[in-house]
Design a protein around this nucleic acid. Structure first.
Lengths: 232, 232
DNA sequence: CGTCCATTTGAGGTGGATCAACCCTAGTGG
DNA sequence: CCACTAGGGTTGATCCACCTCAAATGGACG
């Protein structure tokens, strides 16, 4: 594999142009980088490539332009908990301290925009609006984590899958259809379940007519209210 | 009960003096309120009294002076997930938005110091150091939530209890002994377990000599390394 | 057309939940 | 000072939702 990058954390493709986001996504990042003339760069990562590791210095803050990213923690024996999926428009890797608390990997081929954390911090020291925005973004991550603790600690397998489907539907459905970038194992590691349990729950919802498949990762929700009811 | 407060969210005792914290606790709150001459007030709540409810407007930010507080979310059928315990010195109820995402209750009789959220936000708009501190406090909560997601999604019952004991030992042990303010049900709802499972795990650790009891809530750790190993 | 994974499905095992006594201790009142 | 009570905690027996292990199926891609 001579063409591979030498280090897993060095992006395999390096670009310098700034692309617009594909969709009218609420652009939290642009709202911040637009100020203070921050330098944003584009990088690309191939499927399963590491973007940064757990406890690595947090040098950059990232925004997904295209593709998808998983943030996760590992136990020593390999058990994995995915804390969040990051989809186009999402900012990830933002830390108030100097260390990344979770690792991040590209789920599929992914392009990100990135800026130096230090330059954001500097901008925050000058412009209170930037400081406010950084706080709000971390608070948004906290809100998601709090909701997810309830799911992981207290919901049944079917409730977890229903919650997941509604979340993905909200975040990436176009024309009523969603194209999941992640495999069943990723979904399981996000929901605190095994991949088999996820598959069984999806099959059951399919049998009940609550959702339709066109390929295992192309899902259309046919009865959102039913999912909302089971999500409790 | 004529002497009870009329509303559960109105503190039952109202004080106005500012007491120092009992211990040399790193005082995040003072570091912020010290600036800008913010007005801090003291309130007290009795055991099991609600401090604020889920989705209530976030009017105040709190710091525990004495006692203990649980923050939690409920499902419609009463299942509860406690997201955090707040002990003397801890700040809680800090929101970047206008709404409390979790409810809060006093675990035992508790006294808190509080300031208006709006006045903190105002101070943050003037003093970047205050803004930085608020962001750092929210980031600290996020870090805890991320660790707790790993526990809830992927750890075994024994690993959860070991993690809990080490956390409480770190946060409230004096002279090698810790006095837990919360009951077994609270611990279970924090760890995503039943109270029976928590009790069994503690009994097993007791039988193994890893910990000693003097009363169900007075615990001394006799082998922290053993707990660290099982915490994985 | 064949290979390689991802996914589905089946069969059986198990960790923690549930249901049910029982016990301890602190608080109360005699 | 002690009997009584109530709530929290412990322990036992059983259950079941989800995990584990295994095999079949399917879809993407050379």
């Amino acid at each position: 594999m001579l063409t591979q990058s030498l280090s897993p954390s060095v992006p395999s493709v390096i670009g310098k142009k700034i692309s617009p986001l594909p969709h009218p996504v609420p652009d939290q990042f642009g709202a911040v980088t637009g100020h203070a003339g921050l330098v944003a760069t584009e990088f690309s990562y191939r499927k399963d490539e590491e973007i940064y590791g757990e406890d690595e210095p947090a040098e950059y803050v990232y925004q997904v332009i295209s593709g998808a990213v998983r943030s996760y923690k590992l136990l020593s024996d390999g058990r994995r908990q995915i804390g969040a999926f990051h989809l186009p428009g999402d900012v990830f890797g933002l830390e108030s301290g100097t260390i990344h608390r979770l690792a991040a990997e590209a789920i599929i081929d992914t392009t990100v925009r990135l800026v130096k954390r230090r330059s954001l911090e500097q901008a925050a020291g000058i412009d209170v609006q930037v400081a406010r925005k950084l706080w709000a973004m971390t608070a948004g991550d906290l809100r998601h984590a709090e909701d997810h603790m309830l799911l992981l600690g207290r919901k049944t397998a079917m409730e977890r899958v229903a919650t997941f489907l509604l979340e993905m539907d909200r975040r990436l459905a176009v024309t009523g259809m969603m194209a999941l970038p992640m495999c069943r194992r990723d979904i399981g590691d996000y929901l605190g379940l095994t991949l088999e349990t996820v598959s069984r729950a999806l099959s059951q919802l399919h049998a009940q007519g609550v959702l339709g498949f066109s390929g295992a990762r192309q899902i259309v929700l046919r009865n959102r209210q039913c999912l909302r009811n089971m999500d409790a």
